[in-house]
Computed example of a mutant assay.
Amino acid sequence: MAWVVGTGAVLGMLAIVSGIVTLRTGWILPTARRHVTRPHLHGLGALLMGISVALQGLLYFRVLPGVSWEARFFGGNALLLAGLLLITLSQLLPLRPSRDHTDPSGV
């Protein structure tokens, strides 16, 4: 069981790194580039999902002080669902109009 939780914690750390890179540079993984229209929302969603998964692993291995299982369950699920919602919105919202192309007069 420990290797499953450890693997999840490592994947959570990778999601955190991916979210930070997306927020700082706007770079998105090649598999998601075609679908994402708002990189900032995608980065925040990846960050929240990664924090949720990494915290669950750290709490399992007792690296962090213990909290009740209810707080871990509801807190982890809230972070995970918020991240999933942000990633979904980053793919469903339309592109923002560019300021360079909104004025047809060319001024």
Rank of each mutant, 00 (worst) to 15 (best):
V53M: 07
V107H: 14
W3Y: 13
L44M: 12
T7K: 12
G83S: 06
A46L: 13
L80P: 06
T31L: 14
V36F: 02
H35E: 02
R34H: 08
R38E: 07
L14T: 13
M49C: 12
G57A: 05
M13S: 08
H101N: 12
L84I: 10
L79Y: 01
V107K: 11
A9D: 07
L41C: 03
V107T: 15
G6T: 11
G57T: 02
L59Y: 08
L64H: 00
L41M: 00
S105F: 09
G43W: 01
L44P: 01
L48Q: 05
G8R: 14
A9S: 12
L64S: 02
V53P: 04
G8K: 11
R62P: 05
T102E: 11
V107A: 09
A2S: 12
S98L: 04
L47F: 08
L89F: 08
L59I: 01
T31R: 14
I51W: 06
L23W: 05
L85D: 07
G83W: 09
I20G: 14
I87T: 15
G76E: 07
P30T: 01
P30M: 04
R33T: 08
I16N: 00
L93E: 05
V4N: 12
L80R: 10
A71T: 07
L80W: 11
T37E: 01
W3C: 15
N77I: 08
L93N: 04
S68M: 00
L11S: 12
L80H: 07
A78W: 09
G12T: 00
P104T: 01
I16L: 01
G8Y: 09
L41N: 02
L86Y: 06
V21N: 06
A32G: 06
L95D: 09
M49A: 08
R72Q: 07
G43D: 00
I20W: 10
G66Y: 11
Y60I: 01
G45S: 08
A32V: 08
L79W: 04
F73R: 08
G26Q: 10
V21L: 05
I28K: 03
V21Y: 04
L84H: 02
F61W: 03
F61P: 03
L80K: 05
G19C: 01
V4D: 14
T7E: 12
Q91M: 09
L89H: 04
A32D: 10
A82Q: 01
R24V: 11
F74I: 04
A15K: 12
R33A: 09
T102S: 13
L80N: 09
L29T: 11
N77H: 14
Q91C: 09
S52G: 05
V63T: 07
L14W: 14
P94T: 02
S52C: 00
V17T: 11
R24C: 15
R96N: 11
A82E: 00
P94Y: 01
A2G: 15
L59R: 10
V5S: 11
P94M: 03
H42I: 04
L85Y: 10
A78V: 15
R99G: 13
